[in-house]
Design a protein around this nucleic acid. Sequence first.
DNA 1: TTGTACGCGTTATCAA
DNA 2: TTGATAACGCGTACAA
Lengths: 341, 341
Amino acid sequence: MPRTSSGTRPVTLRDIAKAAGVSINTVSRALNGKPDVSEATRALVQAVASRLDYRPNQLARGLRQQRTATIGVVIADVANPFFAEVVEGIERTAYQEGYSIILANTEEDQDREARAVRTLVERQVDGILMAPAQRSDETVRYLMQRHVPFVLLARFFEGLDVPAVVNDDREGARLAVRHLVQRGHRDILYLNGPPYNSSARLRLSGYRDALEEAGIAFRPEMVLTTDARSTGGYAAIQQALAGGLEFGAVFCFSDYVSFGAIKALRQAGLSIPRDVAVMGYDDIDLAAIVEPALSTVHVAKTRLGQVAVRMLMGMIEGSSSRSERVGMVVLTPQVVIRESA
Amino acid sequence: MPRTSSGTRPVTLRDIAKAAGVSINTVSRALNGKPDVSEATRALVQAVASRLDYRPNQLARGLRQQRTATIGVVIADVANPFFAEVVEGIERTAYQEGYSIILANTEEDQDREARAVRTLVERQVDGILMAPAQRSDETVRYLMQRHVPFVLLARFFEGLDVPAVVNDDREGARLAVRHLVQRGHRDILYLNGPPYNSSARLRLSGYRDALEEAGIAFRPEMVLTTDARSTGGYAAIQQALAGGLEFGAVFCFSDYVSFGAIKALRQAGLSIPRDVAVMGYDDIDLAAIVEPALSTVHVAKTRLGQVAVRMLMGMIEGSSSRSERVGMVVLTPQVVIRESA
DNA sequence: TTGTACGCGTTATCAA
DNA sequence: TTGATAACGCGTACAA
């Protein structure tokens, strides 16, 4: 009966060495596939190791190698479907490359973000993926100063030239609004996200771009700010309706906001898209499933995560050949026409 | 100008010791709030530490203390809103307690689950939270044998007596179907999840319980199996309609499935809830936002995560006083009546 | 109150 | 090809 470690203390290299009658260090090299070890001893060591069900202690290994095969992921909130899908892409890619991910939610809180990053650094992650909360220059500078490889997700800073993977928000918004214009709409409401969000600022620009292209005057009162959360769209539409605003179409900061908007519109007796057309942004899974299926701007979320991981890995591997100029990757959005617009 | 670590190697205890003119160990105790150190030295050490912007290396600390303040979270998929919210609860609670979480997706794959758990063990997590894929006894046994504290999430095994936090799936389904019965429905379709899922089996029981209570005969053809993913509900309803099945209400395994079902029903010209009533399960954020607002069974997802973490912490702390019988916590579901039923 | 010495489990350097 | 030995950074006996 194979005697596995059925009780007490975890099996270490020392245990294997003793059982196999060789030195600790020989065990290490045999197990790590190093060249300088005879096939006979390697086989022996491997046999003993698997008999004892040996598992390397990654803490010790990391301490020694200055490398943990771990990356930190700092986002606002996993419960947000957008981030959830990004994280899914990150996890899958990281896993394929042999990395684990430590996840931290910031809830858009500057302080939590700063603390999360420091915790991750203490835990010796090899790199960090972060969707910065606001203008968190301080945190970014901290990372740069510490020479911790990092890539920004989905959002970025106009000023700083740092590695980032983003969606072309301005273009996405432009395309969405252009689609509405092509359907004959001229009174287009925009339910924007909070202004601290770089995407919100850019999408507003795209909205204006499209209007200008079509020779439609921009009217500030047609832009409402929502909190990008669940009920934001609902409240904004109610407000617009109550204020007597005239509009035939609504472009929303996110699919989430769209859902709320649609609900409010329908409750007001309006039909989608006959009375009011609605376009979302993100193209989360549910956009295609609800009724009416949501017309929206597709953002390659898992791809975004995947690209960010690969970029980060590049920086991690090449961190010896210091300070390679790693730029910003911009993913191209795509309009998806379904039923709502 | 405060000279921070502006370049090279991270600051260690040794650096502080040298700069402060004391021994490494004094620095360690001063920083960790140990009693045997004069206030003067403590102040000095702290000053130097903060001047150098010292960050403890948690790898070294973990190696030494046999405790990493890290827990592993193994689930099918973060992109699934149910799990996303559970993870949110986990992360928040863990963070409050000073723990970090390592996240691993299994995509319902037995092998990935087994590997994920082993990786986590190698990384010396203090405990594991896992939503087991199928009957993954093997993995559970592995954890028990290694004496790794763990708590099962949302699903469990009928046979094994292991710590778990679950929703009372049978009761939830019973309540949901009872509500439909009370609305006068007798032909109630059930779109169930895959049978390897313990929740699916239990909810089916609850469905039958409610029928029995109402004196309605159970008809196997009224139970359809979906993949619980996006399009599952849509396809199932189309199939039911094509098959000429008569029903006035549909109870769904998840809100996700409900959305697909509603879409298919509406496309067939049916109105919700006038022609067909629909009930979901989970009560994800979007259930309240879509139109019609979804009647569903509320599961306290963040709470589930929170309770699981606290339970796990209890096991971790008390792991010295071995083998406490930590049982199963069952969360009570609640029916939420909105518009769809 | 403080310092010395050791060990956590691993990998890397250098002789043998 | 193999084996001592020394780190990695920290906490903790024990001694001073």
